[in-house]
Amino acid sequence: MTVVRWGRRAVLGVMGAAALALAGTPAAEAQGLEKTSIGVLALASSGPIFIAKSKGYFEKEGLDVDLKMFTSAQQVPVAVASGDVDFGVTGLTAGFYNLASKGAVTMIAAQSRDEPGFQLSAYVATKAAHDAGLTKPADLKGKRIAITTVGSTFHYMVGLLGQKHGFTVKDVTMVAMQDVPKMVAAFKGGQVDAVIAPVTVARQLAAEGSGTILGWVGDETPWQLGALFTSPKTVAQRRPLAEKFVSAYLTGLAEYHAAFNAKDASGAVVKGPGYDELLAIIAEATKQKPEVVAAGLPYVEPKGKLLVDDIVNQVKFWQSEGQVDKALDAKSVMDLTFVK
């Protein structure tokens, strides 16, 4: 009995000491660093942030950055607006512009782009629709297309495709399915003619024979997919913090670009310096296998420059769709003073 009790006490003691040690280390390490936080999605498009965090670029700027993971692009700007996080980095949706029109968020640097040669999102036709003659993206006019939600990036991609091929979103029937699994269910059930699907889903549909990939959004209509943003309040009151944050972010961005966005003379994407190391960092942060991450690495502009014309086009598109306040000035949603 005494042995048991001694043992239990010893165990408790060790546990207590371990807890103290665990609680103590980061606090000691983070001393003198300014605390800040960013909302991200566990996707390869957040890669530059994961790299900057893992390789200590934020710490070099004197920042202790807490990464808060979110599950949908809609939630991140809301968290920035409510002050739960200082920064956010995700895809741009109509919801983002509505928050921007109320002065809650502003873009300060670019995230990923849809760019020729980079396969992020595909137009996929069902087998039946393909057999009936749906063979290229331009044929999507007049078809039924499943999207996630009204105001999503997929919604804008359909609009962009229309702008290129001379039709409007009124010429297609968009069916809002709320999320990707339901979108896939509608696709497999033959309820729609096509979907715009993320690369992993598109490849899976093609591999199992239920769909045919018609083309890639990056090849068809390059556009500014996402951005790094913060609240105008942070810019006004804590500008030095924002500048340091952007500086570390751009270091990660440049490294990401060098490793994953390099092309050879023929235009094919090749492995750049540090490829394996950076891929391992992103794989760990997104909790996915490296080969899965490698299949969908988006393009980033190495200096973090936004495609200003496309942002203006996005705002105009949502306004013409009646989903964003007509009074919003497109230039007011971005602050171009951080990225030179």
């Binding site: 809609q74 700007p77 109509a94 919801g95 983002f96 939600t149 105001g151 809002a176 989903q323």
Partner: peptide, 12 residues
Amino acid sequence: GAFVLTAGNLML
């Protein structure tokens, strides 16, 4: 329901 979902997605 669809209206409420859309308004939520658009942050209106």
